[in-house]
Every structure is written in structure tokens, then in C-alpha cells.
Computed example of a mutant assay.
Amino acid sequence: MSGLTLRFKAPATERITLDGITPSKLAALSAHEIGKLNVGIEKGGVALGDAFDISGSAGDTLTIEGATSEIDFVGGGLDSGTIRVIGNIGSFAARLMTGGKIEVRGNVGDYLASGSTGGMILVSGNAGDNLGGVATGDRFGMLGGTVVIEGNIGARAGDKMRRGVIVIKGKTGPGAGSRMIGGTMWAEGGFGAEPGLMMRRGTLIGPSVESLLPTFVDCGKHDLVILRVIARYLKETLGHLAPKPMPLFVQKIGGDTATIGRGEILLPAA
């Protein structure tokens, strides 16, 4: 496995954007062309070679060392290969990602996986607000792929999410699944206050909810075969990172009845 390593030269003179800096794009460029790529956001720009020490050769793996929250759009447009990050990163990581894999040994900022349609994202730390949520100008949030967060996440995760799977080993912030249209969010640490605001469809799974909106209704206890199918699929896909299966019987909370109300929150049955 060949790959390129970028070591960040902190502190940066301006914020850095790595949108489109992917293994497949770098593999098509010479070393000189890679070093000249613009990764700044201001008028003058910043060359990749000025912001990072570059080593190795372009291939199917890109490693970013010494990363900080000043770096945005890591893995933006990733279609294949693997991006490994050591450190924390800023907002809009994995923006419009279609395939490949991103591994972050640290925390990520807001809007992780916004507009993504495929691929795998693994984060060992926490994530900010609007994980898988809709960005300004977009119609939907996350459209596919799988995200695993080993820590906690911020508010409004899955806002207008349409497809895909989000697994949170910790707890969500308030408003998870707001305006959700489809997909699955499984929070092993439970959900924060008022999940599912204006939720149309989709599934939220967890052991507890801090508080429910009054427009969600108790639909009783159920033995849902599909829940065991989801658990089996996640075990095969994620291995030890898969959430622990829910009990045989779960309490189904339906909503949001302020809209079409076909979403569901699944909790252990009392």
C-alpha cells in the first residue's frame, strides 16, 4: 500500500481547506503539482507545500499528521482510498463523500458527512453539531454511507438526513434527527432533549431519551425483526464497533405527528 503523508506546519496564517485533496486526485499529479495546490481560503491562497511537510508518494492512502481544528473539509469529495488523520479537524469533513474510508484519531467539527452518499467514517473522539446534517444551499443532509463516532456528538445530528447509518457510542446533543427523512441513527449513550423535531421518516435507536416532544406518541411494545436485521448487518460491517443489540421487545415512539409522523424512536421496553 502506497501513500502520501502531510504533516501540518502549525500555526496557520489562515484557515486551511482540504476539499478535493483525495488519494485519487493526488495520484494523478506530480510532486511539484501537489505542492502547488491551493488550500487557503483567502484571496492570496496558501500552497499545500507551504502549509504541510509532504513525504512519501501518492497512492491509495493519504495520512494527515499534526492536524488541528484550523483544517476544514478533510476528505471533501473522497471517492476511493483511505484518509487517516492524527489530531483534531474542523468543519465539513467528508463533505459530499461518495466512497472510500476516513479514519480520525481525534475530534471533528460541525457538519461531518454533510451531503455524503457513501463510504465509511470512523472517529475515535467527539463530533460537533449537525453531524450528517443539511448544509446551506443543499436539499438534504447525509444521503448514504456509514459514520461511527466513539465519543459524543453535538446538536441537530441528522438534520434532513435521507439515507445512511450513524452510530454514536456516546450520547447525542439536543434535537437529534430533526427534520429527518430517512436513515438510521443508533446512540448507545442515549439521546439528548427533544429528538426528531419535524421528523418525517427514519429510525432513532438507543437506551434512553432525555425528553420527548409532545407530538410523539407511544405505539406500544414490539418484537421488530428488522431491528435484529440491522444489528446483524452492523456487526458484520463494523465488528467490535457495532452497537450492542437491543432487547427482544422495544418501545416504539412514533412521530413527529406535527408532520406525516412516520418516523420512530426505539427504546428498551419497560
Rank of each mutant, 00 (worst) to 15 (best):
I168Q: 04
V148T: 13
G144L: 01
G119F: 03
I153N: 08
L143C: 08
P174N: 12
L131H: 01
T146W: 06
A157C: 15
R179A: 04
T172H: 14
V165W: 06
I181P: 01
G118W: 07
N126W: 09
M142V: 08
A127W: 13
L131M: 13
G133P: 05
G118L: 12
S116F: 06
A135L: 09
L122N: 01
I166H: 02
G177A: 03
K171Y: 02
R139L: 12
V147Y: 04
A135G: 10
K171W: 02
D129A: 09
G128R: 11
V134R: 15
K169W: 01
T146I: 15
A155E: 14
G170D: 05
S178A: 15
R179G: 00
I168H: 00
T117F: 00
T136G: 07
S116P: 08
N152A: 05
N130E: 10
I121W: 06
R139E: 11
N126L: 03
A135R: 15
G137P: 09
L143D: 06
G164I: 05
S178F: 06
R179T: 02
G141T: 13
K171A: 14
F140K: 11
A176V: 07
F140Y: 14
N152G: 04
A176T: 11
R162C: 03
G175D: 12
T117V: 04
T146A: 09
M161A: 11
M142S: 13
N130H: 13
I121V: 14
V165L: 09
G133S: 03
I166R: 01
I181Y: 01
G158T: 00
D159R: 13
M161E: 04
N126E: 08
G137S: 10
G177K: 01
L143Q: 15
V134C: 15
G175K: 08
M120W: 03
I121D: 06
I153V: 15
I121Y: 03
M180I: 06
I181N: 04
A155P: 00
G164W: 06
G141M: 01
G144I: 03
S116I: 04
G128Y: 12
R162H: 11
R179P: 00
G118Y: 08
G128A: 01
G133K: 01
L143M: 15
T117C: 05
L143I: 01
N126A: 12
P174G: 08
G125M: 04
I168A: 00
A176I: 10
T117P: 00
M142H: 02
L131V: 15
V148L: 07
R156Q: 11
G173K: 07
L143Y: 01
G145E: 06
G128L: 14
G133Q: 04
V167I: 10
G173S: 08
T146Q: 12
S124R: 13
D159T: 09
D138L: 11
T172S: 15
G177H: 03
I121M: 09
V167D: 12
I168R: 02
I149N: 05
M142D: 07
A155C: 01
K171T: 13
G119S: 13
I181K: 12
G154Q: 12
I166Y: 02
T172V: 11
V167Q: 11
R179W: 11
M161F: 05
R162L: 14
G137C: 08
T117Y: 03
G119V: 08
R179C: 00
S116A: 15
E150T: 09
D138T: 11
A135P: 00
G158M: 07
G128Q: 11
L143H: 02
T172Q: 15
I149Y: 02
